[in-house]
Amino acid sequence: MPDDQIALRLRGLTKRFGAMTAVDRLDLDVPRGSFFGLVGPNGAGKTTTLSMATGLLRPDAGSAHVLGTDVWADPVAAKARIGVLPDGLRLFDRLTGLQLVTYAGLLRGMERGLVAQRVRELLAALGLTEAQDKLVIDYSAGMTKKITLACALVHAPRLLVLDEPFEAVDPVSARTIRGILEDFAANGGTVVLSSHVMDLVERICSHVAIIAGGQVRAVGTVDEVRGGMSLDDRFLDLVGGSTDVEGLAWLRTSSD
């Protein structure tokens, strides 16, 4: 693939935590305009990879390029093009929803009038206008994901990197989020998301990479990767691990 067709290019990305190698010389190319799913078992290195790709975690080795800009050599230029939704990190949740998204916009150096207009539109699109004056700490899990997404979108990024955007989200909010993401991708933006819900990735993503043990095991369009099977089966095939439950007879109440 030519360089200008790549939204996110990872080369030899490596991260060790003590004796444990979380990400091991990982290579990945995310084509522009794709809706890219990253799937893998717990502890596969998805969050670590995405953190290194977005400038939140310094890699031990390797590089990450966003639309041709090196994230770790020119972080300011690279970060201006990325919108991030991290998983498991806090928000400034003593602010109201309105204040938080405004804060995210102003931090990006945007002009106040533009921020106000975009925040209004984002909150309306995500159905949060009613709750804009509530503290974010009082939001439900779904609302929290949506307000974080608004923070990631407010500066009109070219690449969206979302870590588990659908976790703990109710079906209605999930539909809203999905609509916004599909619209974003259809208009030339690139979405990278991690998930461990195979069904969802199969339905909404154009491309997928399966990660296990800190390395890419399979990558390509969804059809290429699943090769005639369901993504779920293909995943278990690649990642391995027995699915048969042995023992635990005492849990079966009928054995009484």
Partner: peptide, 15 residues
């Protein structure tokens, strides 16, 4: 005191 909410500053490339 920001705790991990500090990520917003890092992700924004704040000066």
């Amino acid at each position: 005191y920001d705790s991990t909410a500090f990520w917003l500053h890092v992700a924004s490339g704040v000066d």
